[in-house]
């Protein structure tokens, strides 16, 4: 691990200013992903800004009838919150399907959104990777791609986003509240938060330099039945091959988002209107233009069958 200086800050504005003053700095929350990457020198910050003491660890009601989740709310506390369990069960389920209890006890809401891909070629510093070293090439393309993206990827990168929580946030139309070094704040709709890889897979979100996530907001509860169905190689503690997040309303309408298939949590708004037509109709639109490899073509079928299973369960009432 490279040496770094360390700073504790006490307000979000102070954190963003510290980031602007120290090029090469990173915010650290739970650190469960960042430290792992620092040990491998994939992340090499020269300065760490500890954002665990900003008072951003509360979940509060919003005026619009939703919830505001502080950026530092731990994954365990978010999954366990009675309001989340009752009104946003898909989010609780997604969180509980991810990582281990030890990691959920440390990982934060903002950190979970910003965790990086687990593409093995990104992790292997002996091999080229456009996400790790821009312009160096993609070792995954032509490599072993069973876990890689089937839709929305580019010639530069076929990595997937690893988060379960972010898939539920995408489904729920969450908003990402931030503060910039100049003190200005904004809300980024989650649909505009993540980027497709294109030619710049190293730029994963639309956050500006030094911009700090302060909260994630949820709109009013949707009602209906909530599902997060994750398919993986082990029954627990593994990343998704594919995952399906869905809310199904009593009239059969609803919405669907996918994990494990793209560079970001995958949702195609137009696909939701096909819910009444069944899983095939939805998947046709969700995965339109999909370009799987020979190794991961099974994911197309797996998405279809997983959604089929979710819709069948929803019908059982």
């Amino acid at each position: 691990m490279r040496a770094f200086t360390y700073q504790r800050v006490s307000t979000p504005a102070e954190a963003a200013q510290a980031a602007a003053r120290n090029p090469g700095s990173r915010f650290i929350g739970g650190g469960t992903n960042l430290l792992d990457l620092m040990k491998l020198e994939i992340e090499t910050p020269t300065h760490l800004i500890d954002v665990n003491h900003l008072g951003l660890n509360k979940i509060e009601p919003t005026q619009e009838g939703g919830l505001r989740i502080g950026a530092q709310v731990l994954n365990v506390d978010l999954a366990s919150d009675a309001r989340i369990r009752r009104d946003y069960a898909v989010l609780s389920r997604a969180l509980l399907a991810g990582a281990s209890a030890q990691l959920r006890n440390k990982a934060t809401t903002a950190g979970n959104l910003l965790q990086r891909t687990r593409c093995p070629y990104f992790y292997d510093t002996a091999q080229p990777c456009n996400k790790r070293v821009p312009g160096s090439g993609c070792s995954a393309i032509g490599g072993y791609t069973r876990n890689h993206a089937i839709v929305g990827h580019s010639e530069a990168c076929i990595a997937t986003h690893p988060s379960d929580m972010a898939v539920a946030m995408q489904l729920l139309d969450a908003g990402v509240e931030t503060v910039k070094p100049d003190g200005s704040t904004r809300v980024i709709p989650i649909a505009d938060f993540y980027r497709l890889p294109g030619n710049t897979p190293h730029i994963e979100t639309n956050l500006a330099a030094g911009e700090l996530i302060t909260a994630v907001t949820l709109p009013r509860p949707l009602g209906g039945r909530h599902f997060y169905r994750k398919v993986r190689d082990r029954a627990s503690y593994a990343f998704a091959l594919v995952s399906v997040a869905a809310v199904v309303l009593p009239d059969g309408s609803g919405r669907v988002a996918l994990g494990g298939v793209a560079h970001k949590p995958w949702r195609v708004p137009g696909a939701d209107s096909s819910m009444a037509g069944g899983a095939n109709a939805v998947v046709e639109r969700l995965l339109a233009g999909a370009k799987p490899t020979a190794d991961n073509a099974f994911k197309v079928t797996l998405v279809q069958r997983t959604l089929e299973s979710v819709l069948a369960e929803a019908k059982k009432g």
Binding site: Y6, I28, G31, T32, L35, D36, L48, D50, N52, A101, Q102, L103, N105, K106
Partner: peptide, 11 residues
Amino acid sequence: RINSCLSLAIM
């Protein structure tokens, strides 16, 4: 419970 390997002592 946490994984002590993924946490900085100074934090």
